[in-house]
Amino acid sequence: MDLHALRQFVVVARLEHLSRAAEELRVAQPSLSRTITRLEAELGTPLFDRAGRLRLNDAGKVFLRHVERSLGELDAGRRAVAAVTVGQLGSVRLASETFLTLTGPLGTFKRAHPAVEVELHQLAAAEMARALRAQEVDLCVASQPVPPEGLEAAQLLDEPVWVVTPLDHPLAGRGSVHVEELAHEPFVCTREGHWQRRLLDRLFALGGLGSPRVVCEGDEPSATAILVAAGLGIGLIPDMARRSATRAPVAWIAVDGPDCRRTLTLLWGADSRLSGAARLLRSALTEWDWTSGPV
């Protein structure tokens, strides 16, 4: 079975669109179509449903899981050989929704292990399980639940999440607030899929409040407090950010109830053979004191 064809199959399966896959792979679409057809002939079954939009069928989903694991093992083997050849610990690939949370432990790790190359990948939580099973990354740090199938996990931190408001906001002098009191407030938040947005949506759903009024959304959570301080709305910020030396001038208000929290979790593949560098970083992250010091 041709390795090049397998890598092309993974891209087509991920995108479920031949022309976009051909563009990403920089190959002609008819050539890519023939590659997939030959692969299906070799397996003796279609891998996609072609009625209307291209869709990965059940056989394709099963095959994809095995191909991703196989390609991941091959890449891991190449990295292991490279590490042995140069006599170093090698590299480690770490994914996270945001990197601001990791600056402290990563800085300490690099000072202790300067020869280890750390590759950082920004991933949505929804992509983490697939990337770990495919061994595209070694470790992931998530701020929201990730499907546990085939994964190992270690909790790094469980912390409250605060409502932040401009200093002149009517709620600014309060020590705590009920979610119901926020029903009509304008929110500055991250886009759908990010943990802060999912938390906000969940709090409103639990309170029977419908959808929150989001007036500003983006991909950079560190901008939330700055935009709140500018008066654009209110937002949700984790407790860790209160220790930042560069925090914006906003009022911090506790949310009544047990559900307004963030759980930071380290994940890795249950069946993966972590490199020496990955094991070192895993230990550094699990042993880091996440409750003290600036971030």
Results as ranks from 00 to 15, higher is better:
G104H: 08
P145G: 05
V81Y: 13
L199A: 02
S70Y: 10
T85K: 15
L89Y: 12
L182I: 02
A131R: 09
L18N: 02
A129G: 14
T165Y: 05
L182Y: 07
P105G: 09
L106M: 08
A80H: 14
A129P: 01
L6H: 09
V84I: 09
L106W: 05
H113W: 13
G231K: 06
T190D: 13
K61W: 07
T37E: 14
R55N: 01
M1I: 08
V92H: 09
A223Q: 15
A154N: 10
R202W: 13
R53K: 11
G52R: 06
G175P: 04
S211D: 13
A142T: 08
S275Y: 03
G208T: 11
Q155H: 10
T37K: 15
L156Y: 04
L281T: 06
G72M: 04
T98A: 10
L43Y: 01
A284V: 11
V179F: 01
V118R: 07
R65E: 11
E152D: 12
E119C: 02
R197F: 04
R191T: 11
V215F: 02
V188I: 05
A223G: 06
H17F: 00
T263H: 06
M1F: 14
P170H: 01
V27H: 06
R247E: 01
F204K: 11
H113C: 03
G87F: 12
V84F: 12
D158A: 15
F48M: 04
L100K: 13
P46N: 03
G87T: 03
A153Y: 03
D158T: 15
C140Y: 00
A22E: 01
E42S: 14
D256M: 00
F48L: 06
A230Q: 11
T286F: 07
Q8W: 12
G231N: 05
P238F: 09
S275N: 01
L3Q: 11
S292G: 12
H17V: 00
L94R: 13
D256V: 09
D239P: 01
F48T: 00
P258M: 01
A76E: 10
L106E: 04
G52V: 00
L200I: 02
V118S: 04
R69F: 11
V92G: 13
A248T: 09
E159S: 13
L15S: 01
L280S: 09
G150V: 11
P186A: 02
E68M: 13
V86M: 12
